[in-house]
Amino acid sequence: MVTTDDRAQRLLESAAKFRAPFQLDPTLALYSPQDNVDSLAHPRIAAWMNFIGRDYVPKLPAAREPVLLLLPCTRTKPYILSTEHRRINAALLEAGFVPAAPAEPVLLAFRAEGEPEALFSLAPLVHPDGVVVHRAVISEPLGLVPYEHMLAWPGGTSPAVLYDDPGLFEDRGNAVSPWRADCTAERVSATRWKWGPAEKRAYVAMHNAMAEAVATALARFGGVYARRISWVAPGLTHRSFVLAKAERAAHGIVATRQVGAERLALTGANDLLPPALALTALPTRPQCAAALARLAQRLGRSPAEAAGHFGRGGGDATPLALPELLEDLLAAVLPGPRARAA
């Protein structure tokens, strides 16, 4: 029998992901697709969606080439303190980018020995060559989180430092809320569950709501960027939020989800955006294969032997944070001779 004590234990695990002074809002602990769908009516989430979808406008330094760089959300809150974001941002700084504003004082408390203060700035990054990178995070249940509003926004404390949401990854086996009356998941082991029809249907609803949220925002202000790059891991839900139907096969991302006798379509932001405002989803599968080969060479192993290291991003991260793939990110952000010089 599953009881509310199970949720209490999950809340303890969620709270442990936060570093003081940042704290979990228990009403924003979302453990299943159904929790995610319900969260869209949460006052904090609804207000955020209205802000990003209707009011928010990026404020960028003057630039010849402004670039939007969408990064994935992370279990660590704030995102910028995660291993993944630290490594990505460090690579941008090493390539010559400089933040347009100082680091956030509250974040400097987490600075490790040898890390530059610039690593903890939430401001756009400016390159001497005229490129400005505006960082944002693609997230459920928030859709789009501009870096500068990671900690605060006009509504107060940003919900981006208040929530925990592992709820849209079925293969992890724990993305369920068995204490809910509408839970249809089946327990397959002591620690793993298999989604039922209610979870699958809610997944499609939340997936498409997040794609719409991203597209609604970019339809308003995406034209300020010369390039729009989504740097999210292949095969994960965040990549699926972005891709149009015609792009999915090349990325190994399904276009539909079977729910009982129905096959429900998955919509990506690029389905809803005009081609001129579409996001470029990177890294590509060929880039990942080439990066794995370079990693294997660096480690002195075969690609098969290096695959585990690749999948873990060399530690507590994803492949997005590996030097071999960060070469491809820099080439996209600083195309041509500039990336090679950097």
Rank of each mutant, 00 (worst) to 15 (best):
P166T: 04
V188I: 15
T184Y: 07
S189Q: 13
H207D: 03
R172F: 13
E170Q: 15
S189P: 00
G196C: 03
E170Y: 05
Y163Q: 04
G196E: 05
E199C: 10
E186V: 12
K200S: 13
N174A: 14
D182A: 05
H207G: 01
P166A: 02
R192F: 11
L168Q: 10
E199L: 10
P166K: 06
D182Q: 08
F169I: 11
S177P: 00
C183E: 00
R172I: 04
H207C: 01
D165W: 06
P166S: 10
R201Q: 10
G173E: 06
R201V: 00
A175G: 07
N174K: 06
G173Q: 09
R201E: 12
W193G: 00
P178Q: 14
C183V: 02
S189G: 13
E186W: 06
W193H: 09
K194V: 11
D171P: 07
K194I: 09
T184H: 07
Y163S: 07
M206T: 09
A205N: 06
P178L: 09
A190W: 13
Y163A: 09
E199Y: 02
K200W: 04
C183M: 10
R180C: 03
R201W: 04
P197M: 01
T184S: 13
L162D: 11
A190L: 15
R192S: 09
G167Q: 10
A181P: 02
R187P: 03
F169V: 14
P166I: 08
R201S: 09
T184Q: 01
T184C: 06
V204F: 03
R201G: 08
T184D: 07
A205D: 08
S189K: 07
W179D: 13
K200M: 08
V204Q: 09
L162S: 11
D171W: 11
G196P: 01
D164H: 14
P178S: 13
L162K: 11
S177K: 03
P166N: 08
V188W: 10
E170S: 05
M206L: 15
C183G: 02
S189Y: 11
A185G: 12
